[in-house]
Design a protein around this nucleic acid. Structure first.
Lengths: 201, 201
DNA sequence: ACCTGAACACCGTTCAAGT
DNA sequence: ACCTGAACACCGTTCAAGT
């Protein structure tokens, strides 16, 4: 009676049709998101592709919003991981710029997921998993700003303000980029966005 | 036979149910957009509110996208007008900052319309009316940047680059603002966004 | 415990009428 | 010329089963 119970719910296998339907739904939804370019995919289409009935997903997610939150959480985790990887390789003074570049590349490579993370589910509707993932992502940014601090005493409020300014610039570039707003200005929109970022930071 | 024909189509009144159904649809859609906060409203709900059948709108718009384009065009016209009004009242060195502030206030006051203008209909899908309205809006920004030019020769490319940087910052702040991303940082998100803008410009 | 089948109240859009 | 009524192929979601 003191063997396997690491937590309350010791679900034995939780697999049936695809081994793990919940994971299959999340994985396939990320593919659908990448394919559709914009933000639209239907629960029914997702179920069809995974090979189950339309309402089978309700055994694993309360509703469509809960599934979207799981996807957005995964997005924030991937974004944070990309930031950390890239900053680990960069010199101290270039960590912030490198982080900004990876933010832009993430937005460019995952437009629908990016929109899901920031625009579809506002912070006041985020559940625990998503709150945690998104706050960790902002912390990554804040630390990059604090590390590159060149003034005197880095009091927390100034750092937050500076982080917000850096975030706004890179977020605006990313949003303009993935909305196609930079397409008519030059041949390589991503390159243009990175150039504007490098000019400023 | 040479009296009234100012153009090919000399529609006598083009009014029936509400005087002018096309205008009634646009006006009520703007109200629905303002009410819903986010971006979702249905053609059927709009028709219900205006007092016509679901498909009556197809006499005036090819499809839902065409209606959305008309709304987005109206949005760009209002944004440009607000910019011009505000810049006319400001001193030369403050025109750019004043324009940026009005951009932020527009985003804050019209979140769904703002999203419609920039994110829902990408530039490559814009029709003539919308293309013209949006390009005029960017021209307003570019001119504000050119007027505030402090360096030497203002060659067009440098001005475009600087305009893009200013646009990205203000657009990023606006997007973070209307996505509720600034809500947990302070009591007044709009004030915070304006403060960051004033710090930078 | 996990999934299916049938149903409900919605969509956008089309087509054949009505006035 | 402008609008209605009925229909089609979709949605998200729920409820009563099936194994």
């Amino acid at each position: 009676m003191c063997t396997v119970s690491t937590s309350k719910k010791s679900v034995p296998t939780d697999r049936y049709h695809h081994g793990d339907l919940r994971r299959a739904l999340v994985d396939e939804a990320l593919v659908l998101l990448a394919e559709s370019g914009d933000g639209g995919f239907s629960l029914r289409e997702l179920a069809r592709r995974v090979g189950v009935t339309a309402n089978a997903s309700y055994r694993h997610f309360a509703n469509k919003d809960a599934l979207l939150q799981a996807l957005a959480s995964e997005g924030f985790r991937r974004l944070s991981a990309a930031q950390r990887d890239v900053e680990a390789l960069a010199a101290d003074e270039e960590k912030l710029l490198a982080g900004g570049r990876s933010y832009l590349r993430f937005a460019h490579a995952n437009p629908a997921l990016f929109r899901l993370m920031f625009s579809v589910i506002p912070p006041h509707r985020r559940g625990d998993e998503l709150s945690e993932a998104s706050q960790a992502a902002f912390e990554t940014l804040r630390q990059a700003v604090a590390r590159g601090w060149s003034g005197g005493e880095p009091d927390p409020d100034s750092v937050t303000r500076a982080a917000l300014r850096a975030w706004a610039l890179v977020h605006g570039l990313g949003q303009l980029l993935l909305d196609g707003q930079l397409d008519w200005l030059e041949e390589d929109p991503l390159g243009l966005a990175e150039a504007v970022l490098a000019d400023t930071v």
